[in-house]
């Protein structure tokens, strides 16, 4: 199911940073779960706990001004790209201090200043957004990344845009977070050929299957894809195999997944994989504990700030339909 682990290439401080970024996403999602049950998060939300290594590994290969388009399971995409947890959490809570002023919510976060083109509420939307961002990026020497799930590889967006990017040699990286379920349906049941990586071959696009629970494996693959894009050698598809710890959305207890499958994946929790790697690198437990404390404090601060922030006031809001 997974490829061999890639060699590590970072200094110890960077190892701790990757771990910390993943922990930030995990704790953010834990808080989202808690706040949803308290009625502070409205509507629905799609948690990415278990999948943290993919956006963190990918974004570690990007420059700050590169572009990323994420999905409705996008809290990790935004945080990995640099969105402030304070403004992201406030957005989830519909507060005026949210990154989009409370207008977007969980599924549609946009953070232009951090190169987050957007998170898209309809499966596959991120693929086109990143493809278009790559048209701009080509002029700028930048790269654009699309994050999407296994379900999106059955959308027209996937096939049209991979072909489009190939024939125009766009600096795009297509990152499939294959968590093996499209909503409630097993990927294999609805995916002709049963293999996502091999789909890229039809478009002459290089592709790789990656252990999506190993942040350094993701980073290694992303570095190669980003370099290819920046050198004008066109797009790459990365299939990062991973697993969500929660159901599809808040309405889904995910009872359709066999318990032994869930157990097997939980044993390969990306945070545990990372911790094992930190130990291999001889990083002291004390140092890890310090990161844990710092991240916990950061999330706690974000939660307190968001809960204290005002809701947007309909009477004071002065939205314009059009940009002036």
């Amino acid at each position: 199911m997974t490829v061999e682990q890639q060699p590590a290439t970072e200094a110890p401080a960077a190892y701790l940073e990757r771990y910390g970024q993943m922990l930030l996403i995990r704790l953010f999602e834990t808080e989202m779960q808690r706040l949803f049950l308290k009625g502070e998060v409205h509507g629905t939300t799609h948690l990415c706990a278990g999948q943290e290594a993919v956006p963190v590994g990918v974004c570690s290969a990007l420059e700050p001004d590169d572009y990323l388009a994420g999905t409705y399971r996008g809290h990790g995409h935004a945080l990995a790209k640099g969105t402030d947890p304070r403004s992201l959490l406030a957005e989830m809570l519909g507060r005026a201090t949210g990154v989009c002023g409370g207008r977007a919510g969980s599924m549609n976060v946009i953070d232009v200043a951090h190169g987050l083109v957007g998170c898209f509420g309809i499966v596959g939307g991120s693929i086109a957004a990143a493809t278009g961002a790559a048209v701009t990026a080509k002029r700028q020497g930048r790269v654009a990344v699309a994050m999407f799930g296994d379900g999106a590889t059955n959308q027209g967006y996937f096939h049209e845009c991979l072909n489009f990017a190939k024939v125009l040699a766009l600096p795009a990286v297509y990152v499939c977070e294959n968590n093996f379920y499209g909503e409630f349906t097993p990927m294999l049941k609805v995916t002709g050929g049963g293999d996502i990586t091999s789909r890229a071959a039809a478009y002459g696009i290089p592709a790789q299957t990656v252990d999506g629970n190993d942040v350094w494996a993701v980073r290694e693959a992303a570095l190669e894809a980003v370099q290819r894009a920046r050198q004008g050698r066109g797009p790459t598809l990365l299939e990062c195999q991973t697993y969500r710890h929660h159901g599809h959305s808040k309405a889904d207890p995910a009872k359709y997944r066999p318990p032994e499958e869930v157990e097997r994946w939980l044993a390969r929790d990306p945070l545990n994989v990372a911790k094992a790697r930190l130990a291999e690198q001889g990083i002291a437990e004390q140092e890890i504990a310090e990161v844990d404390d710092a991240i916990k404090a950061r999330i706690e601060d974000a939660v307190q700030a968001a809960l204290a922030a005002p809701y947007p006031d309909p009477a004071a809001e002065n939205p314009t339909e059009f940009a002036p």
């Binding site: 086109a128 701009t136 049209e160 072909n163 125009l168």
Partner: peptide, 26 residues
């Protein structure tokens, strides 16, 4: 050809690409 180019017959990709390009500065 960098500014004016033909595309595949892919209306979804053409429009989506225009959107992505538009929100990033073109």
């Amino acid at each position: 050809a960098e500014r004016v180019f033909d595309t595949p017959i892919s209306e979804l990709a053409i429009t989506g690409a225009a959107f992505g390009a538009a929100v990033t500065g073109l």
